[in-house]
């Protein structure tokens, strides 16, 4: 795959051990993530995928090693403020992500925090919801949504912040086949660099270009799963969609 050379995320020799546990979860892990990269991560449960995402977002601090985002080393909490504006993390559990009573308020929460006016925030939230095919969800109560609906709304709360990188932690859990193919469509319409964690090979093949695994706390770069790459036939889908 030809890609632009700008490095977005550079992780060098990062180790992390959860306080109180004997084994490090991540051990001397390195990863270079470039612009336009669409990277899939398939690895067994407990291999540290979620932990890696949390390190990139600065939710936890590495014991060793460095992380650079957009060419700048990130260490202090202050360094992560621009990072969080540019990287959208979809949590593994949507109940962690949705906390406002209504969908509209939740989707508008990010834009409001970014300093947008009320009108701008509502406007961008509407567009995002429409893009995801959730036009009538604005006044729905977040905790009364189904699991799959929560997933899509959680994605909306990330997209409304207009990130340039997406980190998706098992986005397909709880989605039926139809919603899953809708999600594939959506992701293929978003021209965003991404790292996608999933246990579903077919899904991850449709939305990423490279697939890596993790082993012993490291990303296995040598053994990039050489699965025949194919462009998804439904790239532009049958369903009508709008663009943001």
């Amino acid at each position: 795959m030809a890609h632009n050379d700008t490095i977005l995320i550079q992780i060098s020799g990062v180790s992390y051990r959860y306080p109180g546990s004997a084994q490090p979860v991540l051990d001397d892990l390195s990863l270079t993530f470039r612009e336009q990269d669409r990277l899939g991560l398939i690895a067994p449960n407990g291999s540290g995928k979620t932990t890696l995402f949390h390190l990139i977002m600065g939710l936890i601090k590495p014991d060793q090693g460095t992380i650079e985002v957009f060419g700048k080393k990130v260490e202090k909490p202050r360094d992560f403020i621009p990072v969080r504006r540019k990287i959208g993390l979809l949590f593994q559990d949507s109940d962690d992500q949705l906390f406002s009573p209504t969908v509209m308020e939740d989707v508008a929460f990010g834009p409001m925090n970014q300093g947008k006016t009320r009108e701008e925030a509502i406007e961008i939230s509407r567009k995002t919801l429409a893009f995801l095919g959730l036009e009538n969800f604005e006044e729905r109560i977040t905790f009364k949504l189904s699991g799959g609906e929560k997933r899509l709304v959680a994605l909306a709360t990330i997209l409304s912040m207009e990130p340039s990188i997406l980190l998706l932690d098992e986005p397909t859990t709880g989605l039926d086949a139809r919603t899953k193919s809708r999600l594939i469509d959506i992701l293929n319409h978003l021209n965003l660099a991404r790292i996608v964690i999933s246990h579903e090979l077919e899904f991850i093949q449709s939305v990423t270009d490279h697939i890596y695994t993790m082993e012993n706390g490291r990303i296995n770069l040598d053994e990039e799963l050489h699965i025949h790459q194919h462009h998804h036939v439904h790239r532009h889908g049958k369903q009508p969609h709008k663009h943001v």
Partner: peptide
């Protein structure tokens, strides 16, 4: 644990201790 993760999610979306209301 849930409370902690919700707080993290809010911080990732730029929360700095202020809530904004959408309603008029």
């Amino acid at each position: 644990i849930r409370a902690e993760r919700v707080h993290q999610a809010m911080i990732l979306r730029g929360f700095r201790g202020r809530f904004y209301s959408l309603d008029t």
